[in-house]
């Protein structure tokens, strides 16, 4: 037992970069920078659009032409349970595989601390979905970032989009389109409807920490596995469901995308 602990200590020391030897954050006004990096994957591999064939859990071959999703409402959590919530107005990110710069999001003025977990929403909360259009600039503007990620006939954002082609598809052009949205309705006291927003909490692996200090930068490197939209609690068959948008089945894909993300590692510079 003692040996194990000793081993663990050594490993921890080895694993930590030299900069990890930091003094604990004590100044409540101290702020630092965190970078969120979203790295899109297909299973164990890097995601390559269009040309690289993949296989889903249903055994169907496919290529992916579009993979994009919203993540929002970020909270950083320390080991002792202190929570830093990003200012709401600046906590909406659209990541799209065809736009490399969309992979990186820099958060400034993060209170100093050693963060071990990240909590966020996949999709856009109902409040923002129904907010005045002037409160939805940038990636939320249907004329800009959201041009491709918005339903005008059923006002609301598409939270995640996976498109491509597959010989297994029963669609006339052998394509598949998964556009998952729906925020739960309830507008004007209307009834609650399907809600495909999902909140997830990810833990930095190997007891890692994102160390936020005035003079440092922590980069949290997320993986998002596109194939997990199809594989998971429901293995989606492209032959059976080549197009899923506003239908009850969309919920199954939403359940799948809760498993789509993980934190691969953190760089503390």
């Amino acid at each position: 037992m003692k040996q194990n602990i000793l081993l663990l200590c050594i490993l921890t020391i080895l694993a930590s970069c030299s900069k990890d030897k930091t003094t604990p954050a004590t100044d409540p006004n101290e702020k630092g920078v965190v970078v969120l990096e979203f790295d899109n994957r297909a299973g164990t591999d890097d995601l390559i659009l269009n040309n690289q064939p993949y296989r889903n859990a249903a055994g169907e071959q496919l290529t992916i032409s579009k993979f994009a999703y919203y993540v929002s409402n970020f909270r950083l959590i320390t080991a002792s349970g202190q929570v830093y919530t990003l200012p709401q107005d600046s906590s909406y990110f659209l990541i799209s595989e065809d736009n490399k710069t969309s992979a990186f999001h820099t958060l400034y003025n993060v209170p100093a601390g050693d963060y071990t977990q990240v909590k966020f929403m996949i999709g856009i909360d109902s409040a923002r979905n129904t907010m005045d259009i002037s409160k939805r600039p940038g990636v939320l503007d249907p004329a800009e970032g959201a041009a491709d990620m918005y339903w005008s006939w059923n006002s609301g954002y598409i939270f995640a989009k996976l498109e491509g082609s597959s010989p297994a598809s029963t669609d006339a052009q052998k394509l598949f389109r998964y556009h998952i949205g729906l925020y739960g309705g309830g507008f004007n006291n209307g009834p609650r409807t399907l809600n495909n927003t999902r909140e997830i909490t990810l833990t930095i692996p190997n007891n890692g920490k994102a160390i936020v200090r005035r003079d440092r930068k922590a980069q949290i490197h997320f993986f998002a596995d596109a194939l997990k939209m199809l594989n998971g609690t429901t293995n989606v068959s492209i032959a059976a469901n080549p197009n899923v948008m506003v239908t009850p089945f969309s919920e199954k894909i939403a359940d799948n995308y809760t498993q789509m993300f993980n934190i691969d590692h953190v760089h503390n510079e």
């Binding site: 129904t130 005045d132 259009i133 249907p142 005008s152 006939w153 059923n154 006002s155 507008f187 004007n188």
Partner: peptide
């Protein structure tokens, strides 16, 4: 009723 706001 798919649109909930005249602006949209």
């Amino acid at each position: 009723g798919g649109v909930h706001d005249l602006d949209l």
